[in-house]
Design a protein around this nucleic acid. Structure first.
Lengths: 214, 214, 214, 214
DNA sequence: AATGAATGAGTCTTCATTCAT
DNA sequence: CATGAATGAAGACTCATTCAT
């Protein structure tokens, strides 16, 4: 019987120790993958950083690609869900609310980890097409839905006049990427101070209002 | 410490044959780098595809990184300079001109080669920080300047009212990336038909006018 | 920057098999290094002769230089410590004792392995300066100390009159290298028969006595 | 006709330019071979240092081994012939003359170039056995003959009593290698001041006189 | 004669993966 | 389950030598 069992993607472990070790591996792998990318990160490095043996890696994950995918999903889920709750800040003033939403989005998306996840998806788009789905699912999609719901509400309330609400949400999100996020992704020198972020956020809010205010 | 001669970056060759072979190498390297990225592309593959011996590569380029950089600069220069001449299409109608400019930008930027170059910059931002400069210099910077000049002209002519012209150009370019370009970069399924492009382009032009028309 | 684990210099292995393989590698490496020198010996050759895979070499030694150093130290320690016990042969006659000591030294130093170690030190003196220290520590230093102690005793006993005992020991050792050892090191044709050795040994003893007898 | 002519070892050139270039190559090759040894020196390096093309090397020398041999013979001839004229300094006092001869020998033999040539012979004794002959012929043999002639004269004059004159010459030369030369060859730290040299030289002269003075 | 691009065998080293303990 | 030694394919790069120009 040469067939090998496929170890589950880790989580559903019974023993607590096993689960700990699994998390430890994912944590270390993540650190390295985010810093160096997939190809430049070796299983030895991961094992070393995680403080486990190289063989142990293969007790928990089928192979390098599997570990990579597992890391990416776990990080996308735990990290990007902060984006979900953007918007909806109970601000009396729509202009202010929009500005705050934009600022929040910018701040979240220039976080080194978010930048790293984006980079990984782009870098490995050919080899690991599923990453984009994961990123979209946990990151973009939720944000867009959140924004769309919010805009729909304002539309219903007469504060905004929007024909294509989904497109508007996408526009809003895209405009947030002006200047700062875009350059961060390219590692170009850029002013990421709160002032700078507020500047872009204000511009986004103003432009959005001019586009969709009644 | 071994002393190696530094072969010039290739171009200034006297013999015609040498120049041809150099281009051949760059061409093949480009194809592979764009498809697979830096790490996954081996010098052997490049030599094989270019039809030369592995050793020959090192007569023209110091090492893999050097060849990579040379490829990237050459492609950035020759490919992205098409972006330079965007805009300025002599259209009587500003709305139409903006729409066409947006459509042109979108079309150029979802070209597989442009997408590939972008991916490479993002993927190798840590290892090769200069790539971003090159991309910005040959690609983004020229486009922004072109747009800014154009907008300044229209501002002087009273057709637009813009306080920060550079920011406006950046906004225009950013908005063009809504939906299509963004998803292309992630290899997500996306409708890239002319219709779809025109849709986004129209949205960009309309929004821009609402933001900056007098 | 790749992180590699530093495998211990081999010895402190727990498993018996690992230790065996390590010795096997050192043994094969030694054979080749002694025959061909450092540069001409390839890791492939070593792996082949040791009957292990090329990769295995790197589980036990960091790199070629490390393996080389390990080999040299091990051989110096195990081989050259025979020199330590030279002299002190309980001979009633000092002349005879000196002659025997000289003969022993000559015999030990024209052993192919001793010649090989000397050649390696000289050949790699620039690249591996530590080898000389190792050789001196395990080989020369002990012999000199042994001789000096012996001479000091004889000096105290009135059989020799020596002002600088350390220099005298060094002289004795140097004189032993007349003709035979010197030519062996250069691979020049030379008579290494017992007769020939005894001839030089006798000359050394006679000369030494004429220099230092009261 | 695929047969290639064997270019003569260089010297007998008619054109002056050719001879110059040949010397230039030998000079550069020597510098590198002496510093790095045979294996570590590449034809590219030599060509680069000599300021000629790689191909030119093969117009003057059949291959690397040939160039190496040519270098070694030329250097041995031109450099080591200084040893020839040792001794015979017209000193009234034999003790002083011996001391001076010893000091001269030591000084000449710790010259970096002499050390380098010795190292090369020892390092390449297996691969290039002829080097030792060359070294012996141009270096050792002449010195020994010179010393032997001198000693024979003194023997005839009654100042020395020597049974085996050749052996005596060899002893003298060997004793000169005590301490300083020996350690220089191993790149061990050693005092090479004039004082230190004089000290060993004095010891050699004294010892020699005690051995052979009437 | 001189050049320098071309070659391809060979170098050291890394890596993902397996398996006996 | 955990370990870590073993593997062999593959990586980037070097080098002596040749040959068309």
């Amino acid at each position: 019987m040469t067939q090998t069992e496929h170890p589950a993607p880790c989580p559903p472990r019974n023993s607590k120790a096993a689960s700990r070790k699994c998390e430890q591996i994912l944590q270390s792998a993540g650190q390295l993958f985010l810093q160096q990318g997939y190809e430049r990160t070796s299983m030895s490095q991961i094992a070393h950083l995680a403080g486990v043996s190289k063989g142990s890696l293969y007790n928990h994950f089928e192979n390098k690609a599997d570990l990579f995918t597992a890391f990416f999903e776990e990080r996308s889920r735990t990290r990007l869900n902060t984006l979900k709750s953007v918007s909806r800040a109970p601000q009396p003033d729509l202009r202010t609310a929009l500005r705050q939403a934009a600022a929040t989005i910018i701040t979240l998306m220039i976080d080194p980890e978010a930048i790293g996840l984006y980079r990984i998806v782009v870098a490995e788009a050919n080899e690991f097409p599923n990453l984009a789905d994961t990123l979209w699912h946990y990151g973009v999609s939720r944000t867009l839905t959140g924004l769309a719901d919010w805009f729909a509400e304002k539309h219903a309330g007469g504060q905004l006049v929007i024909s294509d609400i989904d497109l508007a949400a996408e526009q809003f999100l895209t405009m947030c990427q002006t200047r700062i996020i875009h350059r961060c992704r390219l590692s170009l020198p850029v002013d990421t101070s709160q002032n700078s972020i507020d500047g872009v956020a204000t511009m986004v809010a103003e432009s959005f209002l001019r586009m969709y205010a009644p």
